[in-house]
């Protein structure tokens, strides 16, 4: 089925957004390897899909999940696991906290764990320590009445990732 989110115009707060289509770029780095991929992320309250494609559009991978089940399909392999985060390890070399990323991408701490958050004068999340990651929300963009992150830089000992969100299409239950 088409995961086209319903765009209901404007929002007062990012946590009202519970479904979206978002595209951008992910840079990732471990101690001795790294790379970048562009991504198309479609999210519904209980189902998500991120399609990655490598530089110049090749080397694609498809990560899908719903509650309790996740699958990653690449040109060479198929993997199953309980959570998308475990599977993202095959792409980036570290456990990408995909469920937390669903909140971080909206400029929100993940409710599932303790976090130390600092906000700028505009009330936007500036830095966050959560799940062993230290995150920096260094660029924002206006979308549908709210301000959402444009670039997030995250670091966890030797691992780093940068999430760049170029195109946001938020939606919510009508």
């Amino acid at each position: 089925c088409q995961l086209r989110p319903t765009t209901t115009g404007t929002f007062e707060h990012p946590n009202q957004i519970d479904r979206w289509a978002m595209s951008g770029k992910l840079g990732y780095r471990t101690a001795n390897d790294g790379g970048s991929a562009s991504f198309d992320w479609t999210q519904k309250p209980n189902r998500g899909q991120i399609r990655f494609s490598g530089p110049l559009g090749f080397g694609s991978a498809d990560l899908r999940w719903d509650s309790g089940r996740a699958e990653l399909i690449t040109a060479k392999e198929q993997y199953q696991a309980r959570s998308p985060g475990e599977l993202a390890w095959h792409l980036t070399g570290f456990w990408l906290p995909v469920s937390a990323l669903q909140y971080w991408a909206r400029g929100l701490p993940w409710p599932g764990a303790h976090g130390e958050a600092a906000y700028d004068e505009g009330g936007h999340l500036q830095t966050l320590q959560q799940l062993g990651w230290s995150l920096e929300f260094d660029r924002y963009q206006p979308v549908a009445g709210v301000t959402l992150p444009y670039r997030i830089k995250a670091r966890q000992n030797g691992n780093r990732f940068t999430l760049l969100i170029k195109d946001w299409q938020p939606g919510a239950e009508k």
Partner: peptide, 8 residues
Amino acid sequence: DQDLEQVV
């Protein structure tokens, strides 16, 4: 990648 400030 300029936006990512990263080169492979």
